[in-house]
Design a protein around this nucleic acid. Structure first.
Length: 427
RNA sequence: GCCCCCGUCGACUAGCGGCCUAGGUCACAGCCCUUUCAAGGCUGUAGCACGGGUUCGAAUCCCGUCGGGGGCACCA
């Protein structure tokens, strides 16, 4: 039988990165096995918020490239079916009515055991199993009942989920057994922690797919990084394409212990992916990102600036700060302690025949040499006057892009009203 | 409190009894390159939680301790 797995998020807000992690493992497993990856929404009502969250989840998965098979299913649609099954269980005396609710009769001797594909053999003493509520007194079935029931209905062969579900497993196993179901295999993947070892939360930084997207991470980097949390291919391979991940993924190589989400490593990897992009595609992504983020900067100028920053920034989100000076004048972040060279620079720039990076560089180096200045001494004030910062893209390329007139303007205007923005503004 | 799971550098991990004076990556430090910042190159700091066993031999197997996480709802 072909493998069939499912990702079953509850529609509460945005998709959390921890959920994405288990979704990814499900997806990689399904694709590797040539099986199916189902998307099931565990909704318990049909409010507007749920509808929005449902759309959001799908949008996030699409952005990540985690495509699912078949139609999205909703837990709520299975409510009546679940109630019927509960009645059947009562009729068979495997469950009983209790103050209006339906409870499952758990065995109180022996152990419930299963061979977890990741954790290995696990035994759970049945005496610790409570008679869980199957259906609430208001008629709504509970998670621990519907979830395994839906797995049965959907023909799920492998339940791949977070380790926070291991103690639910014996309960669900008992319910499934009472239903006469063929039991699925279970694989509990390690949880993700924040840098402080605690559960990943708001204060650790980006948390949801949307936040990572907004911060300028790109999906292939995020997917690659996430795959490496709790799974590894060998002792040295880290950069892998989507296809390589699918080809190499296996549950046998998934680790048992929780992993700490390291934003710095993700950022580094994102930079690696960004730099490896063909220039045109890099520009495309940058343009799309800036548009998404609400920047109204001139697209042609963004495309021209793109190659100047590609080698420099690790996330698309760094672009606005790093390259804003291309779009508006910026007051120097620190005083020009030695701006004496500037008039000579302006003059030089006015005189050179062609205003391209190579010519500019040659002329300015010659100027610095003539003034007996080291390159870094001579160029620092120029960079500051031009970009407002001591950190920027290549100086000569930036001058070329800015153009002769604007460059000279900025260099001459220093001290006199610099900071008055011109051109289009952001947000 | 009870139950379950986990425990290799600061972080992610390789290691499934001898190949380990423990390898790779991020971070960190130094050097090189360099118009700044990155990138890149080279070098380095840093780890088998602890204590008992088993074995000729243990990071690898067993037990205990300690530590961490998860769960114990008419939440999902």
């Amino acid at each position: 039988m072909a493998a069939r797995v499912r990702f079953a998020p509850s529609p509460t807000g945005f998709l959390h990165i921890g959920s994405v992690h288990t979704a990814l493992f499900n997806w990689l497993f399904a694709r590797h096995e040539g099986g199916e990856f189902l998307l099931r929404i565990e909704n318990t009502d049909t409010s507007r918020e749920v509808a929005q969250a449902t759309d959001q989840i799908q949008e996030s998965l699409r952005w990540l490239g985690l495509d699912w098979d078949g139609q999205v299913t909703f837990q709520l649609e299975r409510m009546v079916r679940a109630q019927e099954v509960a009645k059947q269980l009562v009729a068979e005396e495997k469950a009983y009515e209790d103050e209006g609710a339906t409870r499952f009769r758990m065995p109180d001797e022996g152990v419930t055991a299963w061979d977890d594909l990741i954790l290995g053999a696990i035994e759970y003493p049945n005496e610790k199993l409570e008679d869980v509520v199957l259906v609430r007194s208001d008629g709504r079935p509970t998670y621990n009942f519907v979830s395994p029931l839906e797995d049965l209905l959907d023909g799920i062969t492998h339940v791949i989920r977070g380790q926070d579900h291991v103690s639910n497993t014996p309960k669900q196993l008992q319910i499934l057994a009472a239903l006469g179901a063929e039991l699925p295999q279970y694989a509990h993947v390690p949880l993700l922690n924040g840098p402080d070892g605690k559960k990943l939360s708001k204060r650790h930084g980006a948390n949801t797919v949307e936040e990572f997207r907004g911060a300028g991470f790109i999906p292939e980097a995020l997917v690659n990084y996430l795959a490496l949390l709790g799974w590894s291919y060998d002792d040295h391979t880290e950069l892998m394409t989507r296809e390589e991940l699918i080809e190499r993924f296996s549950l046998e190589r998934v680790g048992k212990s929780a992993a700490t989400f390291d934003y710095e490593k993700l950022t580094h990897m994102n930079g690696v992916y960004l730099r490896a992009l063909p220039p045109t595609e890099y520009a495309d992504r940058l343009v799309a990102y800036l548009r998404e983020q609400g920047y109204a900067w001139d697209e042609e100028l963004v495309r021209k600036a793109a190659p100047l920053v590609q080698e420099k920034i690790a996330t698309l989100g760094d672009f606005p700060k790093f390259a804003r000076f291309f779009f508006e004048r910026i007051a120097p972040e620190e005083p020009l302690e030695d701006g004496a060279v500037l008039p000579a620079v302006a003059e030089t720039l006015a005189q050179i025949e062609s205003f391209d990076a190579a010519t500019i560089e040659a002329a300015l180096r010659e100027l610095a040499d003539r003034l007996g200045l080291k390159p870094r001494q001579a160029f620092r004030p120029i960079r500051l006057a031009l970009t407002g910062s001591t950190v920027s893209p290549g100086l000569f390329e930036s001058l070329e892009l800015l153009g002769r007139e604007e460059s000279i303007d900025r260099i001459s205007a220093r001290g006199s009203g610099l900071g008055g923005a011109s051109g289009s503004s952001a947000r």
